[in-house]
């Protein structure tokens, strides 16, 4: 039997890139929301959480409007930089990113907020620089919350269907991720293919979760 591994490969690639983007953006943002007080903070917080509560297709539609060729941003990217995002795997990364980052944002914010700030103050009186304190005190103390947030985000990114379908479409070998390939197989009444893909993605998910949970025990 001839198995096409491209949906699996694509799903992992998209989920990894989306998670990387999430780590880089959601952790600093979570820190900012946990530590800074300003007018309209709660509103901003709700706005950032919105992708989590919106139906994925709605999120996908917004993305489509945002980066589609008719939108100012899409037009700018297309005409000035020659980049067309729609129906590429990069669009799938964006879709997965937007549907998964609130999970890390929430747990990062909670993890940073529960740290006893006297620990950071103690580090200050002991002469450590602010950036050093962030990496040697704050991050280790928030580690459990951060890693569980990363695990959840990765899982969510791996499983996105609606938003990805909206902006990346269903192009076999190019943008067809596992969830979409499974849907395709079911629609085409290809039960064997569907079963196989489902088993593969389940195994991959279990292995990925196991590996990420090893991270959690570091501190």
């Amino acid at each position: 039997m001839n198995i096409d591994f491209s949906p699996l490969y694509l799903s992992l690639k998209v989920a990894c890139f989306a998670t990387l983007l999430t780590i880089l953006l959601a952790i600093p943002l979570g820190y900012f929301l946990a530590r800074c007080n300003f007018w309209g903070k709660d509103l901003l917080d709700s706005l950032f959480t919105l992708p989590l509560v919106l139906p994925p297709t709605v999120l996908g539609y917004y993305l489509l409007v945002l980066i589609g060729r008719q939108s100012p941003l899409g037009a700018f990217l297309n005409e000035k930089l020659g980049i067309q995002l729609i129906f590429t795997w990069q669009a799938a990364v964006l879709a997965a990113f937007f549907s998964s980052y609130p999970l890390l944002l929430k747990s990062a914010k909670a993890a940073f907020a529960t740290i006893d700030q006297n620990l950071e103050n103690a580090a200050r009186t002991l002469g450590r620089s602010e950036i050093n304190i962030f990496f040697t005190v704050t991050i280790p103390l928030a580690w459990k919350g951060l890693t569980s947030g990363i695990i959840l985000s990765f899982a969510r990114a791996l499983g996105d269907f609606g938003a990805t379908l909206m902006v990346a479409g269903n192009i076999p070998g190019k943008t067809q991720t596992m969830p979409i390939a499974i849907y395709d197989a079911v629609i085409a009444d290809n039960v064997g293919q569907a079963n196989l893909l489902v088993i593969i993605i389940t195994l991959v998910a279990i292995i990925a979760m196991f590996l990420l949970q090893l991270l959690e025990r570091k501190y």
């Binding site: 103050n121 580090a123 200050r124 009186t125 002469g127 450590r128 005190v137 280790p140 580690w143």
Partner: peptide, 20 residues
Amino acid sequence: LPPQKRKVGFVFQNYALFPH
């Protein structure tokens, strides 16, 4: 002056030891 440059020794009420 930031606390880093004051050379004060501070003992906190709950000790603020680094648990990790």
